[in-house]
Design a protein around this nucleic acid. Sequence first.
DNA 1: ATATATTTGTGCTACATAACATTGTTTATT
DNA 2: AATAAACAATGTTATGTAGCACAAATATAT
Lengths: 231, 231
Amino acid sequence: MTTQTREIDLSRYLANIWDLLTPEEQELVRENTHIQNFKKNEPIYRELEEPSHLLCLLRGKVKIFKEGIGGRNQIMRLIKPVQYFGYRAYFASQPYVTEAAAFEPSVIAFIPMELIENLIKKNNALAYFFIKELSIDLGESDERTVNLTQKHIRGRLADSLVFLLDKYGTEADGCTINIYLAREDLASLSNMTTSNAIRTLSSFCTEEIVAVDGRKIKVLDEKKQIGRAHV
Amino acid sequence: MTTQTREIDLSRYLANIWDLLTPEEQELVRENTHIQNFKKNEPIYRELEEPSHLLCLLRGKVKIFKEGIGGRNQIMRLIKPVQYFGYRAYFASQPYVTEAAAFEPSVIAFIPMELIENLIKKNNALAYFFIKELSIDLGESDERTVNLTQKHIRGRLADSLVFLLDKYGTEADGCTINIYLAREDLASLSNMTTSNAIRTLSSFCTEEIVAVDGRKIKVLDEKKQIGRAHV
DNA sequence: ATATATTTGTGCTACATAACATTGTTTATT
DNA sequence: AATAAACAATGTTATGTAGCACAAATATAT
């Protein structure tokens, strides 16, 4: 299971759109792409806005989330470099149903979706790239829905920690999760209140499943073990 | 079980993608498609199986669901004629993460995914069709995740009723939902126990938001009203 | 048409999680 | 480096939902 996840991440990382394009197409993309910097917590796009660009995260970390009831956000997906996002709504001919924001200072490439749409109509490899990306995301979304709705708090938090570990990796020590997250974001990721994220993380700490130093979280158990931490 | 493909006018049933194909491509699809009938509650595919065909529901109703914790199923999507399904896992190069079953006697066309994949590589309109379908499904999945995780029981049940109304429409009276569902399926759709689906539907009945006759559910409120039934 | 299995309807109890309040600590900003 | 603002930690209470049990009604199969 873990191996499979790694293979998917790897293939994603290598799935660079660039290699799928002809030199002429590359030139078109180069001419029409612009780069923008985002500060920590700066919004990238908001719900109900009209999508116009394919976004590619070059540096930093990005969360894609939905505002829920009573202002409780639900983080739907996380983006790492180099990953494409923000295109779904355009393809569906809809306004954005989610919001994106930078977790930390980030650099993003903006490629006009009209251009991408035209390229897709001539370039089948590019079309297939998006089919595959969307298919993977939809499968993950289905898994996630069941985890978020059916698992208890401990299981959901454990899932989130494993998810963060898989997505962003660790620091040099090999076990400190390589992202600096407020408890509130951990809660938004795990579908629980901030209080409960704090409380449950404390429990994990007492049980020596993790070690916590402020926002730095060190996973002491093997990945596979923490996935069963709800037991 | 397998009916002669030629007995059925595929061009009529598969209209969605049929029009996107050249005559040669249409002939290829015709030659390789087979039709299969499914009884009520018969499984169509199961989790972990390898996807091999694009499925097209010609008649009947189909649920796509995941088995959750303690055997509690979560219905992820519903399919109505004429709608395509079962292709996501193939595109993602994964086994199925969901299970599909017929709600009622159904007729399904099976088109080999290898053929579809080959067609996509030459036919951009077909590729774009799948990009669009997947994009719409992913957006709906995001909406659904937040509804299922953040709304309370009444809101979730109301959402499900509106969803069923939108998907399958009504009987001749214009307000009886055109699907015959056990309370358990209503629960699986709404992320709650069967007891609570029964109880909450009873409450809606007392409040004259719906009228119930066995498994026939009549929505008395306007659609928009019931969506706020959790208030 | 009849019998058996399944589903529905209720009441009751237990439990998980949200909501709220308070204090101490950390983060971010100037 | 100082200071205000935000966050973390923890206890308490309230509440929504699951779990279970049982009787009545209904569906399904023979």
